[in-house]
Amino acid sequence: MELKIRVILPTVVDVFVEEAIQEFKHYVSDAVEVQVRNLDYGPASVEGEYDEALCVPNLLEKAIEGEKEGCDGIISLCFGDPGVKPAREVVNIPVVGAGEASMLYASLLARSFSVVTVLPNVVPMIENISKKLGLHSKLASVRYVNIPVLELVDKKKMEDSLFEEMVRAIQEDKAHALVLGCTGMMGVATTLHEKLKDHGYDVPVIDPSFASAKMLESLIAMNVKQSRLTYMPPTQKLYK
């Protein structure tokens, strides 16, 4: 049976769309069709609470549209997990956020983990996600490479900066696993793991896009979705 998932990039620019399409082909099985959609209106990137608030309305519309078009699950492809909780209230298919998925996987594999993200603006957001997940005690640190999301297309600069901060996270913060703190950091996790291993640190490096894909695929295979005791449908009222 073929499955269909919708990956929503919560930005109005399409700079990461083609890369996401190509990467997700490697993340999921051949029986899964992947739709990648970006927003019609909202921010160019999500680098703070304001950006997140602006991207949520159209993200929810895209999620509802995906369910109506027969999708079996939804991914909010941003480490801040924008719109994940409200989307769980309005659709009857599983919804996964890249941030929560990657932190949950990291917590399975190590006693502590660090997230290496883009800018200092998003550090509080990531810390809040770890608290909501009940994983804050395992979060060794949140570090950043000081590269805006839209400049992550320079893969060499991104990879070098990530490696430097990952080594510091291991040596100074006692991290036993590393999480890439932005879904724009696709395609570098394996290389970073090998570089760390060559330097004597055999620790997992979690790609949030990959983590969200496999988590959603597992939930669909298990035929489970969000609890209606936790995520109750919105009450009937006027919305304008």
Results as ranks from 00 to 15, higher is better:
E2D: 02
L3E: 01
K4L: 09
V13L: 11
D14P: 09
D14H: 12
E19V: 14
Q22N: 12
Q22Y: 04
F24L: 11
V28L: 14
A31T: 12
N38G: 02
L39H: 05
E47T: 07
G48T: 03
E49H: 07
D51G: 09
A53M: 14
L54Q: 10
L54G: 01
N58G: 03
L60I: 15
L60Y: 00
A63E: 00
G70C: 10
G70V: 03
D72T: 01
I74P: 00
I74V: 12
C78H: 02
P82E: 11
K85M: 11
E89D: 05
V91A: 00
V91R: 00
V95T: 07
V96A: 03
A98C: 12
S102K: 13
L119T: 13
I126V: 15
E127F: 02
N128M: 10
I129A: 03
G134A: 11
L135Q: 04
L135T: 06
H136I: 01
H136V: 00
Y144T: 00
N146D: 15
I147K: 08
L150Y: 07
V153N: 06
K155D: 06
K157I: 01
D160N: 13
E165M: 11
V167R: 13
V167N: 07
A175F: 06
G181D: 01
C182I: 13
T183E: 01
G184P: 08
V188W: 04
L192N: 01
K197D: 04
H199R: 14
V205M: 09
S212E: 05
A213T: 01
M215H: 10
E217D: 11
K225H: 09
K225A: 03
M232F: 06
L238W: 12
K240M: 05
K240E: 08
